[in-house]
Design a protein around this nucleic acid. Structure first.
Length: 576
RNA sequence: CGGGGUGUAGCUCAGCCUGGCAGAGCGCUGCGUUUGGGACGCAGAAGCCCUCGGUUCAAAUCCGAGCACCCCGACCA
């Protein structure tokens, strides 16, 4: 590609609203352009990178026995009613009506379509196992797009769906995909950690995420410093710091004027936060619809509620803190809420920490009063006892083996891929069955597997750049070689040599970006660094005089001079 | 959806407080000089000052409403 014919331009300054490095460099380098919040165009350079990522993914998917399909973006809402996700995913669904008033949705993901399709064509156990995948645009009405290409409303995703006869088969399909994922991230040179994850609105049990660790990420993960346990904070399990056991003491009501928070309570009574019980009130929206119901969560004062765990426990599609009206409806005194003698309509959920600790200070459900020495079972009981606490830095790993349990470390990251053992959620909903070898109806078991392609692009830049610009991993680079010609317009020897080299390189099957513009050397070098093609060669009057071409690797400090007759061979070797 | 911020030339921003000709740098066009790390000179083109309404002799500037975009949080297969 001759730069004199290219479309798009590098920018000296990034737009003010680009915050992350990857966003800034991708815009400055002329790879992407924002149209509106969370909606981007790919310019020619960016598109080439995107296509490279797609072909890496295709190769690995095919190796893992995946078969490519292409499913529609526009989908009748009826299939979303069948799966009940028209309701459970209503917040992210783009909806529209056609001229006859039929309602449609723009696909945020494709479980419904793939299951419908699969049902039509698979009739026998001989049709299984199959893993179908596609690379498709997804549309999600995200409330808050952010971070350049990290959270957007229109994006490209590779999604794959496996169908197996039984759990054993799913294990095989699942691990083939996991292996493919490692291979893909490895080729793209994105360092990732695999973490246990919550499966969210998609349903099913068991999932893992592939996380690229970066401070600009929006996911929080906990990683054990002793073993290989790693989990999304939504899911992470940990061992509650133990409180030394003491004799249970008599409950007592004490005056605590204007003390409404755990911090205030601990300092007022001069006790540790883990000597207190914290009560948090929510209204939960049932996953399958219907009226919201109240939940009363109780947790030791040194811990925080994990709302995802809580939501899963009560099978809710969302939970929100109780409003003042709701609190008074259930006779709960804000700041002094107490699990003792609670309104029986309310579902009370206690974190395990509560049952492991004695003599806790809790609210008395009366303004300015708390109880000391409350004890679980003796003074109150919960509807459920469960793990509803959020893991944090320094908590003890729950999965460690051996003598010394490790501590969890907290990091931020971007979710690059997510794989799920879906189970029969969709095949049951769509009544997908095949006949097994005994002539019995059998419901296939599914897995699903996603990778965000735009996110790979961003993560690659986050992971590989310096102050001058991007340093593309070779497999992603928009071109193999950046050919810079200095004094292209003025020195006919340069223009002839460079043009010949441009053609020769292409004959060898390599791709090349040819800077044949009438620009100063400084401009050309700066642009080359910004665009980030890993190999740069320079033809100039000075080099011609020595009969050499200059070679500089983007990630190297210095350049070297290569005899003209050897340059093609050297480039071939570098590109192998 | 809650909190905060910003909308002026393609991009980065000044001007707004204290109302009175629409500005700078970069980029773009032309000419010339230059030519190994975003070089220089001269001459240009380019803005419905986000939108609508109000106040005023006069509004980019003051007031009101709306819209868009960004950030933090909530949400997020």
């Amino acid at each position: 590609m001759r730069m004199s014919k290219q479309f798009g331009r590098t920018l000296r300054q990034a737009p003010a609203d680009a915050e992350t490095i990857s966003h800034q460099l991708l815009v400055r380098g002329g790879f992407i352009d924002q149209l509106s919040a969370g909606v981007y165009s790919y310019l020619p350079l960016g598109l080439r990178v995107k296509k490279n990522i797609e072909s890496i993914i295709r190769k690995e998917m095919n190796t893992a026995d995946g078969i490519e399909v292409l499913l529609p973006t526009i989908q009748p809402s009826a299939i979303w009613e069948t799966s009940e996700r028209l309701f459970t995913m209503q917040d992210v669904l783009f909806k529209l009506e056609d001229k006859r008033g039929r309602t449609m949705v723009l696909g945020p993901t494709h479980e419904e379509v793939i299951t419908t399709l699969f049902s039509k064509f698979a009739n026998s156990y001989r049709d299984l196992p199959r893993t179908l995948y596609q690379i498709q645009t997804k549309l999600r009405d995200e409330t808050r797009p952010r971070g350049g290409l990290v959270r957007v409303r229109e994006f490209t995703m590779k999604d794959a769906y496996s169908f197996d006869l039984d759990e054993k088969g799913l294990d095989v399909s699942y691990s083939l995909m996991v292996d493919a994922y490692y291979q893909i991230f490895n080729t793209c040179q994105i360092p990732i950690v695999s973490v246990e994850a919550d499966s969210g609105a998609i349903g099913g049990k068991g999932s893992q995420e592939f996380i690229f660790l970066t401070d600009s990420g929006e996911d929080t993960v906990l990683i054990c410093d002793q073993c290989d346990y790693a989990a999304n904070q939504e899911k992470a399990e940990f061992i509650r710091p133990k409180k030394t056991a003491a004799q249970t003491l008599n409950i007592e009501k004490i005056n605590t004027p204007e003390i409404t928070t755990i911090d205030q309570l601990a300092s007022f009574l001069n006790i540790d936060k883990n000597d207190t019980a914290k009560s948090v009130l929510y209204m939960a929206m049932p996953r399958t619809g219907g009226a919201s119901f109240p939940i009363f969560a109780v947790i030791r004062g040194d811990l925080e509620i994990n709302e995802v765990k809580l939501m899963n426990l009560v099978d809710a599609r969302g939970i929100t803190p109780m409003t003042d009206e709701e609190l008074s409806k259930y006779n709960i005194i804000s700041g002094y809420a107490s699990p003792i003698e609670i309104n029986s309509e309310i579902r009370v959920i206690a974190d395990i920490s509560i049952t492991e600790t004695v003599n806790l200070v809790a609210g008395a459900n009366e303004v300015d009063y708390h109880f000391t020495n409350t004890n679980y079972l003796r003074d109150w009981v919960a509807t459920d006892i469960a793990d509803i606490a959020i893991a944090d830095e320094g908590h003890i790993c729950a999965k460690c083996t051996g003598n010394k349990a490790g501590n969890l470390k907290i990091s931020r990251g971007i979710e690059m891929g997510h794989v799920f053992r879906l189970g029969k959620t969709y095949t049951s909903a769509f009544e997908t069955t095949v006949l097994d070898q005994f002539g019995e109806q059998l419901t296939p078991i599914m897995g699903c597997y996603g990778i965000g392609i735009d996110r790979i692009l961003s993560a690659a830049v986050e992971a590989h750049h310096d102050q001058d610009g991007i340093i593309w991993p070779r497999e992603l680079s928009p071109y193999d070689i950046h050919l810079t010609a200095l004094n292209f317009e003025q020195d006919s020897e340069v223009s002839e040599e460079a043009t010949k080299l441009y053609e020769d390189i292409q004959v060898e099957g390599l791709t090349v970006l040819f800077d044949d513009r009438d620009e100063n050397p400084g401009v050309k070098f700066k642009d080359a660094d910004l665009i980030g093609i890993p190999i740069r060669i320079t033809v100039s009057s000075r080099n011609n005089a020595e009969n050499v071409v200059e070679l500089k690797l983007r990630n190297a400090e210095t350049s070297e001079k290569i005899d003209k007759e050897n340059i093609i061979e050297v480039l071939q070797q570098l590109s192998e």
